[in-house]
């Protein structure tokens, strides 16, 4: 599998995120602004919990051991040893398409 449709553009508001199934893997799709989208592997590189988008702090957060990543997937705090793997995002009409970067 090389790409999935993560939903319709209007379904996700700016400064919000959601988990999308990419085959058997969970991917976190984040809409940063009206036009800026990002997607990362949602599996925390620490001990494999599923991360979430923290809208109030504008970062990606893992509730299990308080791992924190910025919106480039880079570790900014906590125990994760490596960044989150990034996926490419583009719009195809109204569809938000996530593909392997």
């Amino acid at each position: 599998m090389n790409e999935v449709v993560g939903g319709k553009e209007q379904d996700l508001a700016p400064n919000a995120g959601k988990i999308v199934k990419f085959g058997t893997q969970p991917v976190l799709l984040v809409r940063i602004t009206q036009t800026e989208w990002r997607a990362f592997s949602a599996v925390c590189t620490h001990l494999s919990c599923i991360v979430q988008y923290d809208a109030s702090r504008k970062l990606i957060w893992c509730a299990c051991h308080n791992g924190q990543y910025d919106l480039n997937g880079k570790v900014i705090a906590g125990p994760p040893p490596a960044p989150l793997k990034e996926y490419a995002v583009h719009l195809r009409g109204e569809d938000v398409v996530i593909s392997r970067g």
């Binding site: 620490h46 051991h65 308080n66 570790v75 125990p79 994760p80 040893p81 490596a82």
Partner: peptide, 18 residues
């Protein structure tokens, strides 16, 4: 052990925290 793991950084002296 859960809280201890929270405190250990990603790498300690080049070795993975886990």
């Amino acid at each position: 052990p859960f809280y201890t793991l929270k405190l250990i950084p990603g790498h300690v002296a080049g070795i993975e925290g886990e």
